[in-house]
């Protein structure tokens, strides 16, 4: 099952978008404005990759940001980016584990 379908089936994921690393829209689940989300995510990803390179932190795996009511998780793959909007925001770690089961240790999150 693709990452998009995998997380799209989670009840806490309200919508999700699949895009490429340059910010081009590929697919979406319950997201009416996928192209805009893909463009913003693409730019955010490139900026965070740049920050990681400046700091010597290695390859970017995920970016998440949270507010009072919802959170957003961006998972970076070798050739694509999956963006998921999550409610409640405290469920980010759960969705992150679904996307990256290898990172199940508490110290790794």
């Amino acid at each position: 099952m693709s990452d998009l379908k995998l997380i799209g089936s989670r009840p806490e994921v309200k919508s999700a978008v699949l895009s490429d690393l340059a910010g081009a829209f590929l697919d979406a689940v319950r997201e009416p404005d996928g192209e805009n989300v893909a463009a913003v995510t693409g730019f955010l990803t490139s900026t965070m990759v740049q920050a990681g390179e400046q700091l010597g932190l290695g390859a970017l795996r995920t970016v998440s940001f949270a507010g009072q009511a919802r959170a957003c998780l961006v998972a970076v793959r070798s050739d694509s980016v999956v963006t998921a909007f999550i409610e409640p925001p405290t469920s980010v770690a759960t969705v992150e584990r679904v996307l990256d089961p290898s990172d199940s240790s508490p110290r790794g999150r």
């Binding site: 989300v37 995510t41 955010l44 932190l57 290695g58 940001f65 949270a66 507010g67 957003c72």
Partner: peptide
């Protein structure tokens, strides 16, 4: 994307 953001976490390999 989210005007009321409070925190951001970016995870890298290292």
């Amino acid at each position: 994307q989210q005007e009321d953001w409070e925190s951001v976490s970016a995870r890298y390999n290292d």
